[in-house]
Design a protein around this nucleic acid. Structure first.
Lengths: 340, 340
DNA sequence: TTGTAAGCGTTATCAT
DNA sequence: ATGATAACGCTTACAA
């Protein structure tokens, strides 16, 4: 592998001049530039990023950390993050924490060691402390949170309006004439889930519903026991007539139980999910869901990071952006059209 | 940020000894080791990977490149790759080519500049040449292909048995009594698609079907025109009575058209997909599909890379592994059970 | 406009 | 078992 020294030797120029050529410095003649580039081509020269990063402290690389890469919201957000940052000349590295705080810590440590210039992260379910995030900001590496936030610290944050989304979905179910609405609630320590639960409960109260405690039932779509419990509830005599799920996957699980039990949707039980995953419109019945513009989330997160990178010094003021949502009504909750 | 020099100063030891401690050298007293580790803790010392990588030429990092991170096959394969490689002490970087050869080239170039120790890659749809792959092997960076391969070059390769999968799926449709079976064929330049098409056609011929050319129709589930054409075909008088799709997404598109046209599945048209995505069993009717163990693909790819890394020199002999598939029969193609 | 030379934080090869 | 020192390939004052 040829290096700059080789180019210097071959061209008879100095190391500094070679370096200047590759850094687009104005301080080189057009002619020398050509000479260097030609030599580079013939020697198949490739710059060594690690050496540059070591010396300059900048790697031109951004780390994106998500709990899992499989969810629509992350797939879409990552894509728009990639578009914006690569246009700005950055390379993007994707890592997944698999919802583990320990892994999240290890990843951030690794990213720091790789001297990434910035990090865009959606926190794991387990993350309730932020030492590992502050380690980065202490090392002058800007951090932007998206989708899942945390009330601690002082980070630029981009989230969607989970509260209003849940509120609107619940109101919609009430307007459909549903009387006994339950919420499959996610882990309350995760911001998106607690906000959705609060939005759900607020809507019920505003419409004069008594808030008996079982309206919100804890539900993890990954836990077979929770699924079994839901099944029992739906088989029982006084089953709910509407389900607002903490996410589309949970809604999907509910739909399958309902189909298994031969309970018709939406006539007997209406269902609304959250996230508007692509599969929503492919299901039968198609699934109503709260739509978030993950593309927009990614875009704002990326530009927000670029802002921080531009403003050099870690600004004391952090920006909190909350993006609007939209309720997508489909077959699974449309009783009125159904009745027509 | 404290560095080794600081530790040397604080402990009164030499740089070399400090380095030995962190590299687990046997040549240090237990006592000095403790002294160093304690100093490291109190100074919050973190090793600098880039410096180590620059000096040693090894970064302890593996790059995983996929066309997109959204597909089940990649999500699952990446997960098992991560498990195995992180157990072996490597960090994993995920990059997506978005099915673009140009992006794929840029990514590999970046990975090389980052001195990754190895690359596991599934090629983009556009990749029909391998210069950029050979650039890596020329730089002594081992490359392992998975899922999508290429007939050029001499790389360790792990794929599933697409031919047999397609053959078995087609035979299954024939056994269900289907007479006019079509195949929604993917881009023939992509290995998995051409193999599936060949398996399909071979099965038809073996069962005495005349191979009229329209049996395999080119179909890109991303192209609205292809979707429109399929819709017209299914609305026409002599529509097929079975569809074998190049992938589950294509099958999903077909199912939706059929549902829209009120054509019953599987009675009037049977459908089989490929990939056994999780959503297959959630659909209504549930979708029959050829199941690939993406977990196994990832596992074999990762261990294969570890082998190459261990055997130092780039072995001239490359290993080609083909993993078995399984046909998952579900409602969308089960006419016999349906009739019972 | 170009050159000189001192690092960046490690690792590795000698000695001791 | 520990130390001194030269790399690794690049950037960046400072000099010329």
């Amino acid at each position: 592998m040829a290096n700059m020294k080789d180019l210097a030797r071959v061209t008879g120029l100095s190391l500094a001049t070679i370096s200047r050529v590759f850094n687009g410095s104005e301080l080189v003649t057009e002619k020398t530039r050509e000479i260097v580039l030609e030599a580079a081509k013939s020697l198949n020269y490739r710059p060594n990023k690690m050496a540059a990063a070591l010396r300059s402290g900048k790697s031109n690389t951004i780390g994106v950390v998500v709990p899992v890469i499989s969810r629509d919201v992350f797939v879409v957000a990552i894509k728009s993050i990639e578009e914006i940052l690569s246009k700005a000349g950055y390379n993007i590295i994707i890592c997944q924490s698999h919802e583990s705080l320990e892994k999240e810590k290890a990843i951030l440590e690794n990213l720091r060691q790789l001297s990434v210039d910035g990090v865009i992260i959606s926190l794991s379910k387990e993350t309730t402390q932020i030492d590992h995030l502050q380690n980065l900001t202490a090392a002058e590496i800007p951090v932007v949170l998206f989708d899942r936030k945390i009330e601690l610290g002082n980070f630029n944050t981009i989230v969607i309006d989970n509260y209003t989304g849940a509120h609107r979905a619940t109101t919609h179910l009430i307007e459909q004439g549903c009387k006994r609405i339950i919420h499959l609630a996610g882990k309350d320590s995760v911001s998106i889930f607690s906000e959705r639960r609060r939005g759900f409960e607020a809507a019920l109260i505003e419409h004069g519903f008594a808030m008996d405690t079982e309206r919100s039932i804890p539900f993890d779509d990954d836990d077979p026991r929770d699924i079994q419990q839901l099944k029992e509830m739906l088989s029982s005599g006084n089953r709910p007539d509407a389900i607002f799920a903490n996410g589309d996957i949970a809604a999907l699980v509910a739909l399958n139980i309902l189909s298994e039990l031969n309970i018709s949707v939406p006539t007997e039980v209406a269902v609304v999910g959250f996230g508007n995953n692509v599969f929503c419109s492919y299901l039968n019945p198609s699934l109503s869901s709260v739509s978030q513009s993950s593309e927009e989330v990614g875009k704002v997160a990326a530009t927000s990071l670029l802002d921080e990178l531009a403003s050099a010094s870690s600004t004391a003021t952090s920006v909190q952006r909350v993006l609007p949502i939209k309720l997508m009504v489909r077959q699974s909750s449309n009783k009125i059209k159904q009745a027509q």
